[in-house]
Amino acid sequence: MTVRILQNPWRLLLAVNAVVIVGVFVHKIQLPPYVPYIHLLVDYHFGFIKRALIGAVVALFTAKVPVWLVFALGGATWLATSALYARLFQNTFGFTARTLPLFVFTAGSLLFVATAALFSIILVLIHHIHLLMYVPTIVTIVVIRHYLAHGCNRTNIAFGAIALVAVSALFLAAQFLGTMPIPEADFVGYLKTRMADPSRTDLLQFAYIWYQPLAKEISDTWGRLPHNILGVPVFALLIWLHTPLWRFFASLIGALASDLHKRLVIAALIGISLAYLVMFAMVFDYSRWISNWAVCMFLILHAVKMLPAARETELIPAEDRKTNISGLVITLIPRVGIVRPF
């Protein structure tokens, strides 16, 4: 029995992943929710400002924001995201014994473009850095799933260009016009009126981020660089552990029937990665950027799988010893962290 599990451990690894997720959530509950909580307090009371969409939505339902709402919203988001990704994986590859290794490693109209633009706008209103973090991936998926699948004409090209300009303009407005128009003391005073427990002033210590200019963020990032750069070998190791997945991805691209599709996908991957390099130079949440970059790669993989292929791509082998070891190590790593590894 033990030998059989070691030879094909993927069902066990999925169970371990589930336990790890629960453990990380319990760990998070015990930490003070400094940044997430204040984002639930900030709204558009003083006009258009950056990072205020979530707080504005919360304000529609409650005048006082309890701390537990951070964990309720976070937990619900985790569950919804997990369910949606499971559905995406099922639609793309299906759930069988042969596709389990791949799942562990990754744990046709204008309406499609309009929906993508709407989600991009929402992401930018939540946090303007999402323009670099997720919007390039959304654009890539739209190109693959809509323009390459249904063809290009003047109407859909113009619609896509207008949507892209609108999202970019919103980013510029949030970045350069979205600072708080009142003194920080008055801002903090208003946030206290929205707190269920105004005595928890420790949860307002990050109010300064609504006043911090881009130049200061870049300066802080470069000031921390000598220390944070020490985590790069760990990031490289984590990426290397996903080698079976990257090989499968490369084979998937190589199997595409159209050379144009291959070139566009490769160019998109380079563009998305360059956007993350820009984030590395601007904001120091390096561990988070690595994780989000990997998520973007996984999403592009699913989009590429939907393109016409000249041949079938072999899945990640389920009984390869090196692959099993990589999957086991990845599964046992509970979290990557936000700024520094783990």
Rank of each mutant, 00 (worst) to 15 (best):
R87V: 05
S120W: 00
V113E: 13
M133Q: 12
L132D: 01
L79I: 13
V135H: 05
T137Y: 03
T137Q: 09
A116V: 13
V42Y: 03
G94K: 11
R154L: 09
F103L: 14
S82R: 04
I141H: 01
L60P: 04
H130I: 00
V124M: 02
T96S: 15
S109H: 12
I157Q: 01
T115M: 14
F46Y: 14
H128F: 13
Y85I: 08
Y85C: 07
K64A: 06
H146C: 06
G151D: 01
N91E: 14
L60T: 05
H150D: 11
G55Q: 07
G94F: 13
F46L: 04
N91G: 11
A59R: 15
I157T: 09
L79T: 06
F93D: 03
V124E: 01
G94E: 07
F71G: 01
L102P: 08
T77M: 10
I126L: 13
T77D: 02
V113T: 13
K64Y: 07
N153P: 02
L111Q: 09
G55K: 05
N153S: 08
Y44V: 00
V58R: 15
H45G: 00
P66D: 02
F48M: 13
P101N: 06
L118T: 10
T155F: 10
L69M: 13
L88R: 15
D43W: 01
T62G: 09
V42Q: 08
G55P: 03
A72W: 12
L100R: 15
L131H: 01
L111P: 05
T140A: 14
L123P: 00
I138T: 09
Q90G: 12
T92G: 05
Q90F: 07
A149R: 15
A86W: 08
T99S: 15
V57M: 14
V142P: 02
G151K: 01
F71S: 10
D43C: 04
P101I: 10
H128R: 02
A59W: 12
A117L: 03
Y44W: 10
P136M: 02
L118V: 10
A97Y: 00
I141Y: 04
I157F: 08
W78T: 09
A149H: 14
A52Y: 04
P66Q: 05
A76I: 07
N156I: 03
I129P: 03
G75C: 06
A83H: 02
G47T: 06
I129L: 13
T62F: 11
I121H: 09
T155K: 11
H127T: 00
L118E: 02
L53F: 13
F48W: 08
R51D: 12
N91F: 03
V124F: 04
L111M: 12
A107F: 12
L123W: 01
A114N: 10
G94N: 08
T140H: 00
N153M: 00
